[in-house]
Design a binder for these strands. Sequence first.
DNA 1: TGATTTAAAGACCATTTGGTCTATATCTTT
DNA 2: AAAGATATAGACCAAATGGTCTTTAAATCA
Lengths: 178, 178
Amino acid sequence: MGVFWSRGYHATALPDLLRATKLSRGSLYAAFGDKHSLFLRALDCYIADAVTRMDIELDPRKDPVDGLRAYLAGYVERTSGAHGRRGCLVIATTMELAGRDADVNRRIASFFEVMEARVADALSRAKAAGRLADGVDPANAARILVCFVEGLRVISKTAPTGAITQAAADALLDRFIR
Amino acid sequence: MGVFWSRGYHATALPDLLRATKLSRGSLYAAFGDKHSLFLRALDCYIADAVTRMDIELDPRKDPVDGLRAYLAGYVERTSGAHGRRGCLVIATTMELAGRDADVNRRIASFFEVMEARVADALSRAKAAGRLADGVDPANAARILVCFVEGLRVISKTAPTGAITQAAADALLDRFIR
DNA sequence: TGATTTAAAGACCATTTGGTCTATATCTTT
DNA sequence: AAAGATATAGACCAAATGGTCTTTAAATCA
């Protein structure tokens, strides 16, 4: 997974994969079929990790506002310094392959849907608890938050963000809650 | 430019370039040197277009709030339907090459800086005109808006957005202005 | 028209790509 | 220790990559 993450699909050549998996050519093909299947496995893995993380951060049994704060804080951390420069496999794959690769497309689309749904759910719970500012619609706010964090990952590829991003994340959430 | 835009750097092969430029191999190399230089030209072109557009939308002589609305509307339009699916050369390049290619890195980083500065400037003018909601910091809000639109372009690759995105954009801006 | 520059077509090249296959070595398992 | 299974190293392959070069055609200019 790591090598695809760091280099992207096209830029990852077989030798890179062999080095990363410490497998011989034969074993790798016996185990995974081909490069594309292996990539799909890596992508599934990455997505599963991300969903797991969200399940923890936005756990329905926890306070939704705390959850959203944790969710944003996670992205702030992941877009700082070297983490930020490494980027995000999902976004890189989206831009590189989505639209030309149906297998990839399905996975990515569903991931974004899941993410937006989880955030929307947390916002709905916040609203039910009277914690949302007047006139805030959970669905709209969810899309805004998801786009914000994805955008963060993009701009932090060239300019890893820091304190200023934390401030922006705080400012954004503050507009929604009370 | 179009072919890099649609396919990305690595996925664009020489034959694609020849077809797109209607040049012969020899002429193309005489004119541009190599694939990388040609790509840089295309990227510069794309960025110049984007900056020009922003200069019009966020023209200091126009009402800043109208300008911001136009700026967001542009992104809403560009992320709908087929436009959306085509994606954005800058973001695709960011994810594919930034961090491994210094020439690319410089261009992208400066573009994001310019964009954020333009948006921040519009917000500052709005604040000076008393059009900003209480407690809104132009720098923070600019980063939020930039991340939002870049995130929009990402998620619209797999799920071209529509009315819901317009609503989200409106909702976001409404949180900042009064 | 005839000479000279310019561009097109595509043969050609070394390298790299993803992928297969065989021969050798390393384990298990009895 | 012997036999069988398993994995390794790496030779090998066809196709595609980015890039060069020569030959031929088209345009320009005198």
